[in-house]
Nucleic acid binder design. Structure first.
Lengths: 347, 347
DNA sequence: TTGTAGGCGTTATCAC
DNA sequence: GTGATAACGCCTACAA
């Protein structure tokens, strides 16, 4: 069960060296005859190299670890699709882990993959910003293993690891500015936990837009969600209680929650409430109303993450570089001019 | 770079056997002192077994291959999440491949995973029913590798492989019967390619419901999609041209396409057109209107697929068993009694 | 209770 | 041109 080069060698009366040389197209000048013979025998016996054995000696697995917080979030599953496809094109397989937005799971998989030398590199979306202690743990993990690690979508502060993402702050700014330009003044914001990278930046963008427009920031208009639909649902009544006329949700899932809950409250979107999301998951345009949201160039991000990994695999050094793409606003049906805008129109 | 049991053995002046025995908790009675010493040394040196080396000798990789047609389809990403989580609980990693509904890719990954002995087992959703030639290829691939293969969500006809799925025919039947019970008589059906397993069965259920209700089957009301949103969009005008009052889409993605296109046509759902989907992806209830659809017990399916695999890994034999779960109808807002129903009410 | 030695399948280093 | 032989890191009879 399992033809080996030994079998081929024996059958042909040559050494395993010869077989290996031929099968790997090594530039050692084997006579055309033996060459053909080996090739034919390999085909006849239906030989296929045992990748484990190959990995054993070459010290590379041909596998890249991919750690994502939640594959059932359309944003991440689309990202996974791009990354897997890019990896596949480079001859790499993807070992996948769902971290459920838990730092413990981040570490669980990281240790599994890095310490076990099960992968040649890792692409991950870290769950939270690490505390000092965890930072040490992470750093020693990465350094001692010597395995390239690249972060995608979210940054790891103070870590010497390349990060591929979007300019989150700008995204938050664009979303909020759009609402402001429509005359909204009381704009709610649903963020994720403050120590999730990305979330804080999006909030910063929100604040900057407000300040620029001379609208004072009100902490009561900011509620922390968790990037899941449910937290959008829960946030809505709180924000309505604050009299908001528009909501910026830090991702599309939460925006979907808001949309959904609005119907339960018989609130029309966008007539009664404008809603902006973030990510532009591909279902966003199919919602009712089609969701105005901040587009992330997913393909670029995924492609670039793999490119970064590939570079490091080819000896390029890591280090804390940030490759940042520009997000852009996709205006659709979930936002409109605030009916009461005339009052403040003169501003 | 990489502490080995040799390092530990050397440091302690014992043999690698001793170290291995201790570290693997083997029932060979090592003296408590050496035992402790080994454990301590391993911790101090930060030892972690090289999984490749372990795999080399144990002949198991601790990895399960998962091949899915489209991870950006919410149904499959949710399934992947369940499967990964179950595998993880059993100590298995998941090597993931996106096949894009192409048989060629099915084989590409299957060969990569099976022939390279990169996985201990494979769970896959086959792209299409295989032709005779492909069937031979598949069978020899699976048999020669001796690696357990389990099919999920879709069957492979005439293949000696366990399949975990839902009673597709029943699902199609329930969906259609629901529409019939609401008075609809011209019911369109959007299927996938006829040779995609599951699709054909769902269509059969549709026919059975029609026959049972004494409504004659009309081929013109059946249009073939591809399980993507776009094909729902394309199918709608065709079906409207046939004067349908309701549509059964063979999955939720296509149903979403229908919903979306209805808005462009200023058609109200469900007042002007009832729509039923299939899968009950978790966004279904968040759509507008919330989608009536056929629920698949995703968790059960994923869990059972992994259980099947685990059994085969433990020596249970494979064979063509079908583990079928019952789907159920989730009635939500996208269906209602047909306004013209009274005409045929007496029927 | 512990050590020796062989082997897993492949690649790599030298000789010949 | 080709072939021994030694790794790679670990496990496991079998010996001692």
């Amino acid at each position: 069960m399992g033809v080996t080069i030994k079998d081929i060698a024996r059958k042909l009366g040559v050494s395993t060296t010869t077989v290996s040389l031929v099968l790997n197209n090594k530039p050692s000048r084997i006579s055309p005859e033996t060459r053909q013979a080996v090739l034919r025998a390999a085909a006849e016996l239906n030989y296929h190299p045992n990748q484990i054995a190959v990995s054993m000696v070459t010290r590379r697995t041909g596998t890249i670890g991919l750690l994502l917080p939640d594959i059932s979030n359309l944003y991440f599953s689309s990202l996974a699709k791009v990354i897997e496809s890019e990896c596949s094109a480079l001859g790499y397989n993807v070992l996948y882990g769902n971290t459920n937005d838990s730092v413990e799971n981040d570490f669980k998989y990281l240790e599994l993959f890095l310490l076990g030398r099960a992968v040649d590199a890792v692409i991950l979306t870290p769950s939270y910003q690490l505390g000092e202690e965890e930072r040490v743990r992470f750093r020693s993990l990465v350094e001692s293993s010597g395995i390239p690690v690249v972060t995608v979508d979210r940054r790891m502060q103070q870590m010497e690891v390349p990060c591929v993402c979007v300019d989150q702050e700008l995204g938050g700014y664009l979303a909020t500015k759009h609402l402001l330009s429509l005359g909204h003044r009381r704009i709610g914001c649903i963020t994720a936990q403050p120590n999730v990278s990305g979330s804080a930046e999006r909030l910063r963008g929100y604040r900057r837009a407000l300040e620029e427009a001379g609208v004072s920031f009100d902490q009561a208009l900011v509620v922390a969600g968790n990037y899941h639909v449910e937290s959008g649902i829960q946030a809505l009544p709180i924000l309505l209680g604050q009299g908001v006329t528009a909501i910026f949700a830090a991702n599309d899932m939460m925006a979907i929650g808001v949309l959904r809950e609005c119907r339960r409250f018989h609130l029309r979107v966008p007539e009664d409430l404008s809603v902006v999301g973030f990510d532009d998951i591909f279902l966003a345009e199919f919602l009712e109303p089609p969701l105005t949201t901040v587009y992330q160039p997913l393909d670029d991000i995924g492609r670039e993450a793999v490119r970064q990994v590939a570079e490091m695999l080819h000896g390029e050094t890591g280090g804390e570089r940030i490759i940042s793409f520009k997000p852009s606003l996709r205006i659709r049906g979930s936002t409109m001019r605030w009916a009461g805008a005339q009052e403040t129109a003169g501003k």
